[in-house]
Amino acid sequence: MNPTNYVILASVLFSIGAIGVLVRRNAIIVFMSVELMLNAANLAFVAFARMNGNLDGQTVAFFVMVVAAAEVVVGLAIIVTVFRTRQSASIDEPNLLKY
């Protein structure tokens, strides 16, 4: 299969992730959308690694996974704290800081 298709798929996934961030209200889902975007990047890296014929892309993908994991830790910590305080996972709920 042509690696270009993977890149296109990655772009689609990235877009889905971005749209998810914009339209979903639940903090967890928003967060998952971000992870989807990261993984789209991973896919693109791997696909490009294949196209370029070097391994840099694959290496990057691993690193990104690790980073994503770290991000999950931090992110969930924050989201959980906010959830505990507000009893709501809605991302629109915390709206004290504005203007």
């Binding site: 992730g17 975007m37 789209a40 990047a41 990057v60």
Partner: peptide, 12 residues
């Protein structure tokens, strides 16, 4: 996420 996807494209 934007940054890393951009990196992927540049890498490509």
């Amino acid at each position: 996420a934007f940054f890393i996807f951009g990196a992927a494209l540049v890498y490509g």
